[in-house]
Design a protein around this nucleic acid. Structure first.
Lengths: 149, 149
DNA sequence: TCCCATTAGTTTGTATTGCGAACAGTTGGT
DNA sequence: ACCAACTGTTCGCAATACAAACTAATGGGA
């Protein structure tokens, strides 16, 4: 029986707690792969192909200077490499090294697996609705913020 | 057309993105109140009354030493105060100062308001289900981790 | 062509965050 | 009295994050 009881948590608290939980999972997985959570996040963002600093900065909500440091350390560990965009020599494309790709794929898989496990106890309807609702939230936010020219 | 289409995001990605969004909101609100996100989190945890370092450590997933520093800085800013537990003189109860209470309540309200706004576009059924689903996730995690003796 | 506002990233300096190991004070049991 | 367990602090270190000033490249106009 899928009783939809009154939410014990005031909804917003539920969101905050969930964020906390996800962050915790991310932290655990990162440590297992000898990464910092920020590095893991970076690698996960790069598995789809090289990305410029500007786009990374937007995606990670980081100032340019913060990102420079993060990429520096990741480069020093041989996880990513800087490439110059031939079309615009100002642009710096960040791409995964073979090592970085391996670690990034593994870490991403682990995070996904662990979250799936946590969601395993949820009825499928709830899971689907959860995904759809989150999709709506994200869309709302993107429209509100990203919509501004 | 607002059809409930198949989730574009693979569910786990949705969770990660949501966590990101919540974190972002928390960051914005913190900055508006001249707090660091960690300080804001600390204040929000203390509005229900004094809490010992140990419990805080567990709630925030921080090592004891990290927490000492966080409380130190918050104390230096006059947001919290350390009190000795008369029953057990090892224990250090952290409580909000009047200033800390004021800022904490304001910040918590702002976060809640902003998240509510983001969720405003969601149908109420979705919102309730979202809260219930998250509740389930948290319970699952608590049972799995906290249940272990 | 030369100049200049714009854009992309880096450098520098500072504060915060977070961990682990070693430490000091308390407590409770023996 | 003594000692193991527990609570919190100190110390040293690396990573994170920001703002301001800077360098280099781009793409217009004048």
């Amino acid at each position: 029986m899928v009783t939809t009881k009154e939410p014990v948590l005031p909804f917003t608290d539920a969101l905050v707690r969930l964020a906390h939980l996800v962050q915790q999972v991310f932290g655990e997985v990162s440590r297992e792969h000898d990464l910092t959570p920020q590095q893991a996040q970076l690698l996960c963002l790069l598995v789809d192909g090289p990305v410029g600093m500007g786009e990374l900065s937007r995606a990670l909500h980081l100032e340019k200077s913060s990102l420079t440091g993060l990429v520096d350390r990741a480069e020093k560990r041989g996880l990513v490499a800087r490439t110059r965009d031939p079309g615009d020599r100002r642009v710096c494309l960040i791409e995964l090294t073979p090592d970085g790709t391996r670690v990034g794929v593994l870490a991403h898989g682990d995070v996904a697996r662990r979250l799936e496990t946590l969601a395993g106890d949820l009825p499928h309807e709830h899971r689907d609705l959860l995904a759809a609702a989150i999709d709506g939230l994200l869309t709302a936010h993107a429209t509100r913020d990203g919509g501004a020219s």
